[in-house]
């Protein structure tokens, strides 16, 4: 009978780790799938990621565009990278609203009592947001081409710009996850999110050149993450010196992820 008490061979350890990893990925995909299915059934959410960017493109090009002159650029070309970043930034509000709703409705409680990977609730949600953003950038690219956006720097460079935007959006998702996990309900989550987004997207180089802004705002507007990412995309999509902006944008995204991911996980673990 002593055979039964024999400890499992050492090789079990990596196996168990592999198993945990496998379930972590599987659970993340389950949550992501569920979140995406939800999106497709909430018309408001779909509206935000499809119709809204189209409206912004039309608004800026045909209403404001005539009064904005950018030396060396057609305004459509100047604007489109800004629209990309603004749209994915606004879209990340969905992360905070969705998580706050899950908390409110008791779904998170259910998840916590299931034998699923702890990390999957947040990872799944942000993965779903990433998928939504892929759809968003495809739509914006199409709309842009229709209204006269002509990226000149080549397909490879364009794709690099898109990846930079998606990475930035992914980092923002984790930030808004922190808000969603801290807010008492989804309404408050929404109310907190927009005042954060407005200065980031509008006090930036997304729609107008920073040197047209008042002096006290220029420092913030040049180096804040939205502007840096927009500038990097402009360089990647339209040509020009790329290295500095791309590095700065990468630094922001990676830095934000390094701070916000553990913060969100901590909020998730401690929220009662």
């Amino acid at each position: 009978m002593t055979a039964i008490a024999t400890p499992p061979p050492r090789s079990v350890q990596p196996h168990r780790l592999l198993c945990a990893l496998r379930w972590g990925v599987s659970d993340t995909l389950t949550i992501a799938r569920r979140t995406i299915l939800s999106y497709t059934r909430i018309p408001e959410a779909l509206f935000f990621s499809t119709v809204q960017p189209i409206m912004f493109v039309l608004l800026f090009i045909y209403v404001f565009g005539g009064s904005i002159h950018i030396p060396g650029f057609s305004y459509v070309n100047y604007l489109m990278p800004g629209i990309f970043v603004q749209t994915v930034a606004f879209g990340s509000v969905n992360t905070s609203i969705g998580l706050a709703e899950d908390l409110q409705k008791g779904l998170i409680e259910r998840f916590r009592a299931l034998p699923m990977a702890r990390s999957a609730v947040l990872a799944g949600r942000t993965t779903a947001d990433l998928c939504r953003n892929v759809l968003t950038v495809i739509i914006i690219t199409a709309v842009g081409l229709i209204v006269g956006f002509r990226p000149t720097a080549g397909a490879f460079s364009y794709a690099a710009g898109i990846l930079l935007i998606l990475l930035f959006a992914y980092a923002l998702s984790w930030g808004f996850a922190v808000i969603g996990l801290s807010a008492p309900n989804s309404e408050v989550a929404q109310v907190i999110s927009f005042p954060l987004l407005f200065p980031l997207t509008f006090a930036s180089s997304a729609f107008v050149p920073v040197h047209n802004l008042p002096g006290w705002l220029q420092g913030f507007a040049t180096y804040q993450p939205v502007s840096v990412t927009v500038s990097a995309c402009r360089a990647l999509m339209l040509g020009g010196p790329t290295a500095t902006w791309v590095l700065q944008s990468l630094a922001w995204s990676v830095g934000l992820l390094a701070v916000l991911t553990p913060l969100a996980v901590h909020r998730y673990r401690t929220r009662t």
Partner: peptide, 29 residues
């Protein structure tokens, strides 16, 4: 080893009944 059903009926409103059960089944591995 446990199941939990709560007073707040923790189901996802935007999923169908079947999708809800399947989701919990998958998360139960």
């Amino acid at each position: 080893r446990i199941g939990l059903a709560g007073q707040y009926a923790a189901v996802d409103e935007n999923l169908t009944g079947k999708e809800n059960i399947q989701m919990v089944g998958h998360l139960n591995h």
